[in-house]
Simulated scan of single mutants.
Amino acid sequence: MVEVGDHEAETTPSDLLRRVAEGEEVVITRSGEPVARLVPVRRRARRTFGADRGVFEVPEDFDDPLPDGLQKAFEGG
């Protein structure tokens, strides 16, 4: 991790972004106090459509009205 002042961050943003892209964290300070932190973005794995197919089935009564007591609880009654 490297610390840079706000003036340096304003004058060399491309350099800071290059360093962050290479995996380094950069803390930007103002008057010696940390005010911001630049960190690399973590790449997510690609999602596979249908990967959980068959894990859950929607029950036949999914659309049926709720029992009275449960419906009242949802309505704050």
Rank of each mutant, 00 (worst) to 15 (best):
V4W: 03
S14Q: 14
E10H: 09
E3W: 02
P59Q: 09
L38S: 00
E60T: 11
D6R: 09
Q71L: 15
V20E: 00
T12F: 09
D6I: 15
E24F: 08
V35D: 07
G23N: 05
E33K: 13
R18W: 08
T11G: 02
E8R: 04
T29F: 04
G69T: 07
V27R: 09
S31D: 15
R43C: 03
T11M: 11
G50I: 05
A45G: 13
T12A: 15
L38F: 03
S14F: 07
L70T: 11
R43K: 13
E57Y: 04
V4A: 08
P13E: 08
F49W: 09
A45F: 05
S31R: 14
S14E: 15
G23Q: 05
G54A: 07
L16D: 00
V55D: 13
T29R: 09
L17S: 01
V58A: 08
V58L: 12
A45N: 10
D52E: 14
D15E: 15
E75H: 12
E3T: 10
E22V: 00
E24K: 11
P40M: 02
P59L: 10
D61H: 12
M1T: 06
L17M: 11
G23T: 06
V39I: 12
I28G: 00
G77I: 08
V55M: 10
R44M: 13
E60R: 11
S14V: 10
V20H: 00
L17A: 03
G32V: 09
T12E: 14
V39L: 04
V58N: 02
T11D: 04
S14A: 15
S14M: 10
S14N: 12
V55S: 08
L66S: 05
V20C: 02
G69Q: 06
H7S: 13
D15I: 07
R46H: 10
V35Q: 08
M1Q: 08
F49G: 07
L70S: 02
E3Y: 07
A51Q: 14
R37Q: 10
V35T: 12
E24I: 04
D52W: 11
E60W: 04
V4G: 05
A21V: 03
E22F: 02
T12H: 14
P67H: 03
P59N: 07
I28D: 00
V2M: 12
S31N: 15
P13N: 05
P65K: 04
G69K: 03
G23A: 11
V27N: 04
P34L: 09
E24M: 09
L70W: 05
P65R: 05
T48S: 12
R47A: 15
E8Y: 14
A9I: 03
G76Q: 07
T48Q: 14
E57D: 11
